[in-house]
Design a binder for these strands. Structure first.
Length: 270
DNA sequence: CCCTGAACCTGACCGC
DNA sequence: TGCGGTCAGGTTCAGG
């Protein structure tokens, strides 16, 4: 579920509640997420939170002793609650904070992760091969154009590949391609530099707009204060199969590509 | 290297 | 009400 805008919304919402707080204790009710939560994670107890940053779809919570890497998978969410609030069925872990508040992780499908690392996080196996941040200075159409040469794979899977750029998942890939007028199945090496310029702009625009709206809530996603994200109302193609294209009035199609649904307008996207 | 398909897990929804 | 099938925002891994 959560793509870059939802993870960024989570980070922004949590940050004022977490940074400089002391972690009083950690309570794990379900260790089996995407990977088993290691006992090393208890080194967080007694530590002060120094920062909460985002890299791609990962959140990195840093202390003097080491770093917790948090991934929300498909259905994960984080909330700040009163420590007195009883946990419910899929609330897998709690981080009790110094001010009687608790950071609570909920994840029905358990595809998320909570990992411990003492080395610099950027060296971690899951982070070291990640591509550019789409909202960074270096990201541009020319970057996509250069590394797409000789790549026959479809453009949708290309922009969803975290080794190339991070944070673009199934919703925003469809949305960005629609805005750029590019067919999701077009080969990556058959797109001009000019069109990559437009695509890079569309990716940045759609991600920034979604962050401003607090992300997209389909089923499981809520901001840390329990609010849904409102970007769903601005989706142009995602989830709109058989509905009219907002640009040309044609019919939006859905096609399964690499086991993921792609939504597009066959008239506007080539 | 490139791509596909399976795997991990639960819940919502739809048709019968 | 119940059952079976399908689908869902992510990512890794095995295999051809």
């Amino acid at each position: 579920m959560p793509e870059l805008p939802e993870v960024e919304t989570t980070r922004v919402g949590l940050s004022p509640h977490l940074v400089r707080q002391k972690i009083v204790s950690l309570h794990i009710r379900q260790r089996q997420l995407r990977w088993l939560i290691s006992d090393q994670i208890f080194q967080l107890e007694g530590e002060q939170i120094l920062s909460l940053i985002r890299r791609g779809k990962y959140l990195i919570l840093s202390t003097q002793a080491g770093h917790a890497l948090i991934h929300l998978g498909m259905s994960g969410s984080l909330r700040i609650l009163s420590a007195a609030e009883p946990p419910t069925k899929h609330d897998h872990w709690d981080m009790v904070l110094g001010d009687k508040q608790v950071l609570r992780y909920r994840d029905p499908r358990r595809f998320g992760a909570l990992l411990w690392t003492e080395a610099p996080p950027e060296e971690h196996k899951l982070l070291c091969d990640l591509g550019l941040e789409p909202l960074s200075e270096e990201f541009c159409g020319d970057y996509l154009f250069r590394i797409s040469r000789g790549k026959s794979r479809p453009i949708k899977s290309f922009i969803m590949d975290s080794k190339i750029l991070v944070g673009v998942g199934n919703i925003y890939a469809s949305e960005a391609l629609f805005r750029a007028g590019i067919h999701p199945q077009r080969r990556a090496d058959r797109i001009s530099a000019k069109r990559y310029e437009i695509l890079a702009g569309a990716i940045v625009k759609v991600l920034k707009t979604a962050i401003s709206a607090g992300g997209t809530s389909l089923q499981d996603f809520f901001t840390p204060t329990g609010e849904p994200g409102y970007f769903r109302q601005q989706l142009s193609v995602y989830g709109r199969e058989n509905q009219p294209c907002l640009r040309c009035g044609g019919i939006i199609k859905k096609k399964v590509q690499a086991q993921r649904s792609s939504y597009y307008c066959p008239n506007c996207q080539h």
